Simulated assay, not measured.
Amino acid sequence: MLQILSITTPIFILIGLGFFAVRFNVISREQIRGLGSFVITFALPALVLKALSNNSFQEVMNWQYMLAYTAGSLAVYLLGLLFALRLRREPLTTGAITALGMAVSNSGFVGYPIVAMLLGPAAAIGLALNMLVENLLIIPLSLILAEAGRQQGSTAKVLGETAKRLARTPLILAMLTGLLLSLLEVRLPAIPGKVVEMLASASAPVALFVIGGSLYGLKLNGLFAELRMIAIGKLILHPLAVFLLFSLLPDVDPVLMVAGVMFASSPMLSIYPIFGQRFGVEGRCAAALLFTTLMSFFSISLLIGVMKPHL
């Protein structure tokens, strides 16, 4: 138990530091947003670039990991959508956003620091592959369905806007560059490589601090029953689905399996309320983010104990 807490406690202490730093006005919300922009624009792209360029293309593009994580995430997304539409009678627009909260992890800000402490270098490869699945499949699918529910904008228009956004995203550019360098077996020169390494090393602690600062001020607003189902989908069903998919595949690398399951166990992405704001459900999304992040301390600690024997 102490070994498990030695992994999870520092993670949530850093989140707590960010929360209380904003709570007591040591750092402002604007500064937290600035730190978040630093992580998304520089630190995480550097981490992904370093991980991909320093490994062979065959190691990076692990088809078993991609298949298990993609199929598991998509299965939970569709289950969440069915739950929202059939049981809660939500319209397609809000149902798509509800399902998004169950199927897309905060891989960069929460998942990577935890997996890195647990598994080391394998975490960066898992992060890069997760970003491909999340940014190229689950998030665009959610936006298309949500727009379709509002009957505003054609599918082609939504796809075009999504493609333009992705083409300007530093993480996607870093992935493509890293994959190209890996494919060509080219390593970064010493000086740029050192800069990338320094930026990458800042990603985990700053990301956790930003998460904590972003949580301050969010309220649960009496939505416990609704939030409970989103949290169950994200913290229990998502990692369970990824684990089951890995279990069906032959000769799976146990390290990558644990990485995939742990990434899936992370709470939803920190910009979840921003997606909700676009469709008028930002309050519920913010409450879901707060509740799920709080509950993840217990669920992730338990899951680490369960997954340890697989290493």
Rank of each mutant, 00 (worst) to 15 (best):
2 L>E: 15
4 I>C: 09
4 I>T: 15
11 I>H: 09
13 I>P: 02
15 I>T: 11
16 G>H: 06
23 R>E: 15
29 R>M: 09
32 I>Q: 02
33 R>P: 01
34 G>E: 09
34 G>S: 10
34 G>Y: 09
35 L>S: 09
38 F>V: 14
39 V>E: 05
53 S>P: 03
56 S>A: 13
56 S>C: 06
57 F>G: 02
60 V>I: 12
60 V>R: 01
63 W>F: 13
67 L>R: 02
70 T>V: 00
80 G>R: 00
87 L>F: 15
90 E>A: 13
92 L>A: 04
97 I>M: 06
98 T>Y: 11
98 T>M: 06
102 M>N: 01
108 G>C: 03
111 G>A: 07
114 I>C: 03
114 I>S: 05
119 L>N: 06
119 L>P: 04
120 G>D: 07
122 A>Q: 12
122 A>P: 07
123 A>S: 13
125 I>T: 14
125 I>S: 10
126 G>S: 10
129 L>R: 07
130 N>I: 12
134 E>N: 05
137 L>H: 01
141 L>A: 12
142 S>I: 08
146 A>Y: 10
152 Q>P: 00
157 K>A: 14
158 V>E: 08
159 L>G: 02
161 E>D: 14
165 R>C: 07
165 R>I: 12
169 T>V: 09
171 L>I: 04
177 T>S: 14
184 L>F: 15
184 L>H: 07
189 P>I: 05
194 K>W: 13
197 E>L: 06
199 L>P: 01
203 S>W: 07
210 V>S: 05
212 G>M: 10
213 G>K: 07
215 L>R: 02
216 Y>K: 08
217 G>A: 11
218 L>C: 04
224 F>D: 08
225 A>C: 09
226 E>H: 10
232 I>F: 14
236 I>Q: 00
239 P>N: 05
249 L>H: 07
250 P>R: 05
252 V>M: 07
255 V>N: 03
264 A>Q: 04
265 S>H: 04
268 M>E: 02
273 P>S: 00
283 G>I: 01
284 R>V: 12
286 A>N: 03
287 A>P: 02
289 L>H: 05
294 L>E: 02
299 S>A: 13
300 I>W: 03
301 S>E: 08
305 G>D: 12
305 G>F: 13
307 M>N: 08
309 P>R: 06
310 H>G: 07
